[in-house]
Nucleic acid binder design. Structure first.
Lengths: 181, 181
DNA sequence: GAATATAGGGAGTCGTCACTCCGGTTGTCG
DNA sequence: CGACAACCGGAGTGACGACTCCCTATATTC
């Protein structure tokens, strides 16, 4: 692969992430191309169909989240590691439709890479949850599926209602209380 | 207004509700028309633009929810009235993209009717919450905005993750615990 | 039951968007 | 530095969806 091809690919991915974060997947490919400073054909050469471009963005996001979660697993406090990850993710999701979509599109489509990445993130969150339960910071009868669902739901709420930070924190506090007591 | 016009209008609204519930607002107007058993032109005569059709569906849903909430206010137990409404709404939202959208689109667009209906629903939920707090079923420091945000979020989670009933109930239980303790 | 306004239907129109074709450009390797 | 392959860009193309035009059909009114 030639050098300019590699940098263009990266530029396209960055632009696509920004564009889809703002406009959702309804945003046009042409918008992505112009934001990346390349022609449309270049976008389609790197990602032959729009779903494939969306998948690439999705996988990037999921892997970054997975790495964040994995890094926190080896951190010090299991309890705050779990809650911090939860809160950070929701905070990041505000204004970024794509993150919420990334979370929930978990293997819904027939995109193998996305399914894999989603599974890995889920596993990383599972580890975080497990440690938090062992440390007594989360109720023992809480399981991964409902935690994941809450993560998805609260993220989407943050995206779709123009939530100011205050309300968002109060909402998180309620959910966290439910996870603890 | 002629009789057939009235029945056609109702048929279109019903069809639109079903179609948009399944496919989201990306579903085509032609699909709505054929499901209603009328021509496309008829749909456009009653609702001159697609946003207006969407708004009409939205207002219908919001008003029905508002009525449900209002009916529960005069019911017997304030605590279970609140939690029942919450649970019922989330249950109904599963598989119906439109309900979740209806909740969150709350005055986002410049649609006056929708804004009004959304405000009325919000007020009805507010009453429900107020009574529940007075009865000691919900913590006193909980306020409407975060409750509404949770309603939106949990509904969307139910829609976008293929949530089975079991996980959905466990998720609700966590949120309810957070609202109580 | 005839006259008339009102409503319906389906074949268009127009714009948009995903995707392609081909002539020009540029990195790379001997 | 020159030649070749890899890459780029932008003007197309085809499909699809929102919306319109106009002729036909039906409800209403006297």
């Amino acid at each position: 692969m030639r050098a300019d091809a590699r940098t263009n690919r990266a530029r396209i991915l960055d632009a696509a992430e920004a564009v889809f974060a703002e406009g959702g997947d309804a945003a046009s490919t042409e918008e992505v191309a112009s934001r990346a400073g390349v022609g449309i054909a270049t976008v389609f050469r790197h990602f032959p169909t729009k779903p494939q471009l969306l998948e690439a963005v999705l996988v990037g996001r999921l892997e970054r989240l997975r790495d964040q979660a994995a890094a926190l697993v080896d951190g010090l406090e299991p309890g705050s590691a779990f809650f911090d990850f939860f809160a950070t993710l929701v905070e990041d999701a505000a204004g970024k439709i794509a993150i919420a979509t990334a979370l929930s599109e978990a293997g819904g489509g027939a995109a193998p890479e996305a399914t894999r990445a989603s599974g890995e993130l889920r596993a990383a969150v599972g580890k975080l949850l497990e440690r938090a339960i062992e440390a007594g910071a989360v109720r023992a009868d809480v399981e991964l599926p409902e935690v994941y669902a809450l993560l998805v739901g609260v993220s989407r709420a943050a995206v779709y209602t123009a939530l100011d930070a205050n309300v968002r924190d109060r909402m998180l506090a309620i959910v966290f209380d439910g996870l603890r007591a």
